[in-house]
Simulated assay, not measured.
Amino acid sequence: MSRKILIVYYSHSSNTRKLAKLISAKTAGMLYELEPERAYPGDYTAVVDQAKKEIEAGYHPPLKTKIKNIADFDSVFVGTPNWWSTMAPPIATFLAEYDLASKTVIPFCTHGGGGSGYIEKNVKLACKKSTVLSMFSSYGSSVKDSNVEAWLKKNGIK
């Protein structure tokens, strides 16, 4: 049976976008980049400070982008940078606003040395009625095709 795959991601520095595009190329999944209504600052220190405050407050920033046909997909990859050991707030907004019950959710992240942190755990908490498969994490933009292939195969996607 063919899966209808959606790849939803938020990328601040383009590393997560690069990984999302690679996953799309390997799965023929539809790419969908989340955009907050108010963009995060470009300055590293400013975005780190803002992200920390938002995460600590449990803030879900409003999204500029909306997915109208989420029901059409049975597998949803969810990609985020690791911010303070968890998902970026735009991803938290997505998980709170969209019904992913009975869907297969596959998290992935990019990081600057912090690994996947608590992202997989937090995705499972946000998607209690979904099947959440094992997470993939990549340091910066150093993702390798073979590692993505192995992860997809392990999760039964390829």
Rank of each mutant, 00 (worst) to 15 (best):
L6F: 03
I7C: 07
V8G: 01
V8I: 00
T16P: 01
T16N: 00
K21D: 12
K21F: 13
L22I: 09
L22F: 05
I23S: 08
S24Q: 05
A25Y: 11
A25V: 10
A25K: 15
T27Y: 08
M30E: 11
Y32I: 02
Y32M: 06
E33A: 10
E33P: 07
L34I: 08
E35I: 11
P36E: 00
E37P: 02
A39C: 06
Y40W: 07
Y40P: 12
D43R: 14
Y44H: 15
T45S: 15
A46M: 06
V48E: 13
A51Q: 07
K52Q: 15
I55F: 09
A57N: 15
H60C: 14
K66Q: 12
K66L: 10
F73K: 01
D74C: 00
V76W: 04
V76L: 02
F77Y: 01
F77Q: 03
F77V: 04
F77L: 05
F77G: 03
V78P: 10
G79T: 06
P81E: 09
W83L: 09
W84T: 12
T86A: 13
P89C: 04
P90F: 06
P90W: 08
P90V: 08
I91A: 03
I91H: 01
A92T: 14
L95Y: 06
D99N: 11
K103W: 03
K103H: 08
T104S: 04
I106W: 00
F108T: 10
C109R: 00
H111V: 09
H111K: 07
G113F: 00
G113Y: 01
G114H: 11
G115N: 07
G117H: 04
Y118M: 15
I119Q: 06
E120K: 04
E120F: 02
E120L: 08
E120H: 08
K121H: 14
N122V: 12
V123A: 02
K124M: 04
K124F: 06
K124L: 09
A126W: 03
A126K: 09
C127N: 09
K128V: 11
K128I: 13
V132Y: 02
S134Q: 15
S138R: 03
S142D: 12
S142R: 11
V143L: 12
K144T: 03
K144R: 09
S146D: 04
S146A: 06
N147S: 13
V148R: 05
A150K: 04
W151K: 00
L152G: 05
K153V: 13
